[in-house]
Structure formats: structure tokens, C-alpha cells
């Protein structure tokens, strides 16, 4: 296996530093929200995790398109890697959202468009992994995975739109103020800075994790081929 690239080591260090700073900002720099209290701090990493989930879904669909075009194994490995990271982070997103909603909306769960869409995204990711598990031929596994990643990605905005046509109570913190959304708050400059920094940090986390996971995938591929060679 090729040695760990220098750039990856640097990326690890930068990501770890950014993450430490982001945690510091969230707990010590951002002010306590006047109405919701401490639980509002969950918001920063909650949105950032959702952002990583979206990024990985996008990455998986993109890798799928490139894989279908070129047929290079590399892009199949990138696709699985992205999906796996997406599952972990959408899970964080859903659970933290639920924990936030309990004191603020007075319920663990509602069928709000974002919650619904995130849940369905998680199910699509899970289905993607189950599809791959059922196929032995690596070439076909890659093709089917790519097709499903593309189809799934395209369905997500449609799912969101269909869920949105229902009434929503999820706060839209960025952009237009929507009357009636409970748990709405105006971000002070410090909150906004913390929020933006969290997004940046999690983007780095995503790239770093993806890189590591792709390297792991390539190692697994290498081992698999060696096994086949020895078995033959």
C-alpha cells in the first residue's frame, strides 16, 4: 500500500486544529441564546453535520456519474466512501435535531420537510448499501451503486418539495424570516461567526474523512484482489 501522503498528514493536523477551535467557539465564544438557553448550541454542529450529509450525497452522485462514464474502480470506491460518511453524519443530524426539538418544540419528532427529507435520505443510503451487499461481481456492483446514487440524489429535492407543501414548523435561520416557525432566533454576530466557522470546519472534516475512507477502500480492494489471485 502506498505510504500516507504528506498532504493528508497536513490536512489531518489542520482539521484537528480547526475542530478544536470550533468546539471552543461553540462553548465559550458564542453567547447563550436568550430564550432557548444552552440547547441552542447544538444548532452549530447540527447544521454542519447536515451539510456534510448533503456534501457526501452530492459526492456519491458525482462519483457515480464519473464511474459510469469512465468505469474506473477509483470512482466506485469514492462513491461508497461518501455514502458511508453521509450515513454517519445524517444520523448525527437527525438525532441532534431530535434532542433540540424536545425542549423547544416539546416533541422528539415532527414530520417537518427537513426532518422527513433527512430521514428518507438516510433510508436511501441504507438501501444503497444493501443493494451493494447483494451483488458479488465488483463491476456490476459499481454500476448498480452508481445508478442508485444518481437516482437517489435526484429524488431528494423532489422529496423535500413534496414534504414542504405540508405546513412546516422548522425554523429557517438563514434567509427569509418565516412567521410561525417555532424556535426561530436572530443570530448575533458572534453566533454567525461560530456558525460559519463550524460549517468550514465540517467541510474540512468531510474532505479529510473521505480521503481516509477512500484509502481504506483501496486497501480493501488490493487485499481482495490478492485473495482472488492466491485462490486461483
Amino acid at each position: 500500500m502506498e505510504p500516507k501522503p504528506r498532504l493528508l498528514t497536513i490536512l489531518d493536523a489542520v482539521t484537528a486544529a480547526l475542530f478544536a477551535i470550533a468546539v471552543g467557539l461553540v462553548f465559550f465564544y458564542a453567547p447563550t441564546e436568550a430564550v432557548m438557553g444552552q440547547v441552542q448550541r447544538v444548532f452549530y454542529f447540527h447544521v454542519a453535520a447536515g451539510w456534510v450529509g448533503m456534501l457526501s450525497f452530492l459526492a456519491a452522485a458525482f462519483a457515480g456519474i464519473v464511474y459510469l462514464r469512465t468505469g474506473r474502480r477509483h470512482w466506485d470506491i469514492v462513491g461508497v466512501a461518501a455514502v458511508e460518511i453521509g450515513i454517519a453524519f445524517i444520523f448525527i443530524n437527525i438525532v441532534t435535531g431530535s434532542i433540540w426539538a424536545r425542549p423547544i418544540w416539546n416533541t422528539w419528532w415532527t414530520w417537518d420537510p427537513r426532518l422527513t427529507t433527512a430521514t428518507i435520505m438516510e433510508l436511501i443510503y441504507a438501501a444503497y448499501l444493501m443493494l451493494r451487499q447483494g451483488i458479488e461481481d465488483p463491476d456490476r456492483r459499481g454500476r448498480f451503486g452508481a445508478v442508485y446514487a444518481i437516482v437517489g440524489f435526484i429524488s431528494v429535492p423532489l422529496t423535500f418539495m413534496s414534504a414542504r407543501l405540508f405546513r412546516t414548523i422548522h425554523p429557517i435561520v438563514i434567509g427569509s424570516n418565516q412567521p410561525g416557525a417555532e424556535g426561530q432566533f436572530d443570530m448575533t454576530p458572534r453566533m454567525l461567526q461560530t456558525f460559519m466557522f463550524s460549517l468550514l470546519t465540517f467541510t474540512f472534516v468531510f474532505v479529510d474523512l473521505l480521503w481516509h475512507r477512500v484509502r481504506l477502500g483501496k486497501l480493501a480492494d488490493h487485499v481482495e484482489q490478492l485473495k482472488l489471485k492466491l485462490a486461483a
Binding site: T32, G37, Q38, V39, R41, V42, A49, I92, T96, I99
Partner: peptide
């Protein structure tokens, strides 16, 4: 502000 510290701790524990 509402006393919601426990929920924050739970949230970050999950993260």
C-alpha cells in the same frame, strides 16, 4: 433563558 443544559450535553455527546 430556559434551563436546557442537559439537552445540550446529550446533543454533543451524540455528535
Amino acid at each position: 433563558p430556559a434551563d436546557t443544559g442537559a439537552y445540550m450535553i446529550a446533543g454533543y455527546a451524540v455528535i
